[in-house]
């Protein structure tokens, strides 16, 4: 009897310990709600209804420049931006793979800017993409592909190993959003209304080598294959961000790849005039990203492009879905006013 009681006690203690450990992990992990909100974008997708015909993948050039709400408003296109800061091409691949477990879109739009990077840029960016992603085989593989030398898999599994030093930086936000989260994007689009005009065009430095790395092509091929396997049309784009400079040599390589693989490629830098982007008004950080007005112009243009070139459903004619989107649009309009 005494032994049974002891075993029960031990089990209870262990369960409580695991619970405390779990809570500490949650408490110390950044919440990305009011500061570095980019870190919460990946997870917001999980709460969405999964009926998107267009999925965007890529770095900040997608989440800052393309507004799915505008695509819907203009042409009834349902879309979602699975973008994140400095998203590497291997991260885009695994994110797409994860997305396909939830839904099969008609079009995947990949922003090719990340082709210029052949290795992870920083741990902080890895964290912004990975921290809030749901655990899956894709997340595990993405961590393995993304980790810098000083990073460890265990610190992703147990965030306390990475964020324990936040014990003196905890704020009200850490308690408020311990289990809760708030939406700070619209279908993955991050609104920014600020205006910081592009005053001088950045000086273009010559590079020693313009050739994309093998690893980038390897993952581009994988993205292409994944789309083909799922009967999805892949669309390559280059968003109209003025810097980092998109070299002609880069463009030529993407053109060639697109041509060889019968994939469409749109470089929006060539269509700035046509779209009507004015870098004295339409950017919030001197040309690196578009602000709300710039993103709206680009999204309107892109909605027309998509409608003209692909067979997409106009969901405004589907009452059930339109009701959902009208509610979202109402909120969106309030926020952008």
């Amino acid at each position: 009897m005494k032994t049974i009681k002891r075993i029960i006690n031990v089990i209870v203690i262990l369960v409580i310990a695991i619970l405390i450990f779990y809570l500490l992990n949650k408490l110390l992990m950044p919440k990305y709600m009011t500061d570095l909100v980019e870190g919460s974008m990946i997870s917001q997708y999980y709460d969405e209804e999964k009926n998107h015909e267009v999925i965007f993948i890529g770095d900040c050039e997608v989440y800052a420049n393309f507004s799915p709400m505008v695509l819907y408003q203009e042409k009834g296109i349902t879309s979602y931006v699975r973008g994140s800061s400095q998203q590497m091409i291997w991260q885009s691949y695994y994110l797409l793979k994860e997305t396909l477990k939830y839904e099969i879109p008609k079009i995947v739009v990949f922003n090719v800017n990340s082709m210029r990077y052949s290795e992870p840029v920083s741990e902080a960016y890895n964290r912004l993409t990975l921290d809030k992603m749901k655990w899956s085989k894709e997340k595990y593989d993405m961590i393995k592909a993304s980790m810098l030398d000083e990073e460890t898999m265990t610190s992703y599994i147990f965030p306390i190993l990475r964020y324990h030093d936040r014990f003196d930086k905890l704020t009200k936000e850490d308690i408020e959003y311990l289990f809760d989260k708030k939406k700070n994007t619209y279908q993955g689009f991050l609104i920014n209304k600020e205006i910081k005009p592009l005053e001088n065009k950045p000086v273009v430095k010559k590079l020693a080598n313009y050739q994309f790395a093998d690893i980038d092509y390897e993952y581009l091929e994988k993205i292409k294959d994944l789309c083909e396997e799922n009967n999805i049309k892949l669309l390559l784009i280059k968003a109209p961000s003025v810097y980092p400079h998109w070299y002609d040599e880069y463009d030529a390589q993407i053109e060639k790849f697109a041509e060889e693989n019968h994939i469409n490629f749109v470089n929006f830098l060539d269509k700035v005039g046509e779209i009507g982007i004015d870098y004295s008004q339409d950017t919030y950080d001197r040309g690196l990203h578009l602000n709300l007005t710039g993103a709206t112009k680009l999204s309107k243009y892109f909605a027309t492009y998509l409608k003209e070139n692909y067979e997409l459903t106009d969901y405004r004619e589907n009452k059930e879905i339109d009701d959902i989107y009208q509610k979202k649009l109402e909120q969106y309009m309030k926020e952008i006013m």
Binding site: R6, N9, V10, I13, L14, A17, I20, F21, L24, L28, E123, E150, E151, S155, I160, L161, R162, H164, D165, F167
Partner: peptide, 24 residues
């Protein structure tokens, strides 16, 4: 009691995990 010893051990581990200076 062994239970107290277990609690002591677990507490020590948790304190080290939170207040230790280590990692990236």
């Amino acid at each position: 009691a062994p239970e107290i010893k277990l609690i002591l051990t677990i507490s020590a581990i948790l304190i080290i995990l939170v207040f230790g200076v280590y990692g990236i």
